[in-house]
Design a protein around this nucleic acid. Structure first.
Lengths: 121, 121
DNA sequence: TTCATGTGTAAGTTGAGACTGACAGGTGAA
DNA sequence: TTCACCTGTCAGTCTCAACTTACACATGAA
């Protein structure tokens, strides 16, 4: 898995760092499932599950795809995306370094991207 | 770093998965600091910083120690604890497996430790 | 004594994320 | 037509972590 910047790393960590979402990952580890079935297995409401799946998808941990079953029903399947992140001080420092590089690339001069105040006071 | 059960893994991930705490780790990566100084550098209130440091310490990411400075002042120093966690599906499944083993060991018969309902309905 | 420095904590507010319930829409089968 | 499935989303509530303000208490130096 490629190196992430702080924002991506944070999205990833925040996504995994939640009990329900860990359970979702465990369940999806057994194979691809559609939303309603997954909700039933976990004993979780479907709208809630949607929120978690959305979060996991944004962080790149799961992939969703709408499929038509044999009998014509639409089923939203989710499968686990392969991920492997080494987490130590270096990972974090590297992410921070990437932020700087990102800012160099897309902004002209790294003017405050996340914090509107720029440098801390 | 040894294998963690779900609870420990969750504490770890939730601790790191927060922007402010990532900043704390980055700052501590440059060396040991005492709380007030760290608060100044990060532009964060001291009570707030305490909360974050507490969280990080419980997750085993930092270590705090009270020291007496030359001029007799008590300073609470924090330093980064070495940590290195590989995060992938196996890590998560292994954590879940450890939960079961833990339950075997300390309870008589794995009766619902986290979820009071036991098996999902 | 007063000031500037530090630790530690209690009490309150706030805001975001987690969660519920209800809806609108689609399909195929009885 | 009704039922049993499914998807997708809205509008709320609720809970808890995050955050602020304020305090009590030490120390050494001016």
């Amino acid at each position: 898995m490629q190196a992430m910047n702080s924002e991506e790393l944070l999205a990833f960590l925040a996504a995994v760092g939640h009990a329900q979402r860990l359970r979702i990952i465990k369940e999806l580890a057994t194979g691809t499932l559609y939303v309603s079935e997954l909700a039933r297995r976990l004993g979780v409401s479907r709208p809630l599950l949607y929120m978690h799946l959305e979060r996991l998808e944004k962080a790149g941990l799961v992939i969703g795809r709408l499929e038509l079953s044999d009998d014509g029903k639409a089923l939203k399947y989710f499968e686990l995306a392969p991920f492997d992140v080494q987490l130590n001080v270096d990972t974090i420092l590297t992410a921070a370094r990437l932020d700087g590089a990102d800012a160099q690339r897309d902004g002209s001069g790294e003017a405050g991207k996340h914090s509107p105040k720029g440098t801390p006071q």
